[in-house]
Design a binder for these strands. Structure first.
Lengths: 193, 193
DNA sequence: GCTAACATGTTAGCCACTAACATCCTTCTC
DNA sequence: GAGAAGGATGTTAGTGGCTAACATGTTAGC
């Protein structure tokens, strides 16, 4: 009971900052919105902003997806080959997000596509997702022990997923994303046979 | 004749800045080396530094590879399928750099692997390389006219190339890079059949 | 109530990067 | 060969992301 009030207040402050930030980004663009401005809109100082989000980019890119993917990877049977396992795990995680949150996902993707700084940050995050995939596929915790074959698969699958999501965002979210992802994987397979 | 002296002087200044920068990065690390320090070592002011290189990252990432790849893509016969064309073009461009410049390439790769800021910048550059590949494969100049199939191929091939180069750098450059790239493509193909 | 813990604000500063202006040096013209 | 024009450079000052130090207020546990 003791810490509850504090935790809840902190969570609300965090949400307020994020909400105001996304609103301002949408209204005036990412680069044109300063951290100080966001902090003022949320009623805090810019130092407090940085106590909640280590960088400006993190307001957009709070990574909730890695745990999803990790769990999905664990539920994949060993009978599937490497690509199938990654493909299905990503599809599973994505389906959950997509069903719950389609519009928010689209807004986020479009923001990401609009600001170079955000895109580079995304790449960094994907690097950690890739490391996760590799460890999971290779069944080891030592990054140096991952064979190149596994790294090739992980990076290629992520590239395909990214391409599908990017295409989806470029088209304004008109298509069905899970279908697009399926299609993208099928296309790669078709090109390589 | 008139402008020659000026041009040559500028070229020398540019090289001096770059040389000193790479030396300092090697000695004390990328993040630990400030632009002002580099400028001082090169005997110029920090504003002059930025007149030669738009960002600190650009000292490391002057992109000479895209033109190579573009030329190589043009020399590929239409009889090859998409993946083969990209694969061979990249192999051709890489072979040239590798033969001429192996040690410099290795040093650069290792620097890239060491600094997150540089890596994200690399991703941005790869985005432009990917766009180039897509246009070349699709035979169009309109990015919106590129079918997803082509984008999937381009992004996956780049991912494979990057994985091979990264592996090479991680292993200290002991392997033969062109061979590694070949192997990486073969592995992806093997996993997808 | 008192004290320890903690969230926040203020201030000052670093660094990448930019703009404005003055200076100097080359180059071109007469 | 003197002077004007143009370009390269330095100085200064400023912005924005981000950090550290310290002071203050607010809550938690006794």
């Amino acid at each position: 009971m003791s810490q509850d009030w504090r935790e809840r207040k902190k969570a609300r402050t965090r949400e307020r900052i994020q909400r105001e930030a996304l609103r301002l980004f949408g209204e005036q663009g990412y680069d044109e919105t300063t951290v100080t401005r966001i902090a003022a809109a949320a009623g805090v100082s810019h130092t407090t902003f940085f106590r909640y989000f280590p960088t400006k980019e993190d307001v957009v890119l709070a990574d909730e997806y890695d745990p999803l993917i990790e769990a999905a990877m664990r539920s994949r049977p060993d009978s599937e080959d490497l690509v199938e396992r990654v493909r299905n795990a990503m599809a599973e995680g994505l389906a959950a997000v997509y069903a719950a949150d389609r519009d928010a996902l689209l807004a986020r993707v479009r923001l990401l596509l609009s600001a170079p700084a955000l895109r580079s940050r995304l790449w960094e995050q994907m690097q950690s997702t890739q490391a996760l995939l590799e460890r999971s596929l290779a069944g080891t915790d030592d990054p140096a022990a991952v064979p190149m074959r596994v790294r090739v698969v992980a990076s290629a699958c992520l590239a395909v997923l990214t391409t599908a999501i990017t295409t989806w965002g470029d088209e304004g979210g008109t298509a069905d994303l899970p279908e697009l992802v399926d299609e993208a994987f099928a296309q790669l397979r078709a090109e390589l046979s």
